[in-house]
């Protein structure tokens, strides 16, 4: 474990906590894409299949359970909670997320470390996570005013994978130059998708003005 990976995991955890607090405190999920949240549940389910078969560390197991539990509860709130589900922007959250999932699955069938169920599904989760934020970014462009919590959520979500990129560089130089193209390139694509959001987020933060994404 290195400081970059720990910072990445904590940033990721913080982003999810912020979203969960926003939904619970305001009883509203306005501006949040249910499609993206559902894709994240699929990402965690397909990535943590070895949760009960391979013990890596107490930290690893705990974090996996926390990520699974929080992401599933967010989807539950947005789908079934009587008050929260009324605030879901159903007519604006129209991104066809299975158009993202299917190519990722096909790509995982073609390009993977080894052809086993666990490994192909893990690879699928890596590819899917890279594009899972797209429905949320599209929704942000459509929704006129973005509330601070939602802006912070998306920012931290993007920042965590950027920290993971630094973690991979660090591990490459300190752990016998292990090359891991699949997570590296996917992580690069994932972080790049946030580039313009990062630009507008930092601009709004510096000018102390409301976050607005150009349509």
């Amino acid at each position: 474990m290195n400081v970059f990976r720990l910072a990445g995991d904590m940033t990721h955890l913080l982003s999810i906590i912020i979203l969960l607090l926003k939904i619970r405190a305001t009883k509203s999920c306005t501006g949040i894409s249910l499609k993206t949240q559902e894709l994240y549940v699929i990402v965690f389910l397909t990535r943590y299949l070895d949760l009960f078969t391979k013990y890596i560390s107490f930290y690893n197991t705990t974090m996996k359970l926390v990520f699974l539990g929080t992401s599933i509860s967010i989807v539950w709130y947005m789908r079934y909670h009587k008050v929260v589900k009324q605030t879901y922007n159903k007519d604006q959250d129209t991104f066809r997320h299975y158009f993202l999932a299917i190519p990722c699955f096909l790509l995982a069938l073609l390009i993977h470390h080894e052809f086993t169920v666990i490994e192909v599904l893990w690879t699928f989760s890596i590819y899917l996570e890279a594009v899972a934020i797209l429905p949320q970014l599209v929704l942000l462009q459509r929704s006129r005013n973005i509330d601070n919590l939602t802006g912070n959520y998306v920012f931290l979500l993007g920042a965590y994978r950027a920290l993971y990129l630094v973690n991979w560089v660090y591990r490459y130089f300190t752990e016998n130059h292990l090359v891991r193209w699949i997570p590296w390139l996917s992580g690069l694509v994932q972080t790049t998708l946030y580039a313009d959001f990062f630009y507008y987020y930092i601009k709004s933060w510096k000018n102390n003005e409301k976050l607005q994404l150009p349509a």
Binding site: R5, D9, H12, D50, K54, I56, S57, N60, M63, K64, F67, H113, E119, W122, Y164, N167, L178, R180, I182, P183
Partner: peptide, 10 residues
């Protein structure tokens, strides 16, 4: 143990 690249990460 067969070291899976990246399998010790979240």
């Amino acid at each position: 143990r067969h070291y899976y690249p990246g399998k010790d990460e979240l």
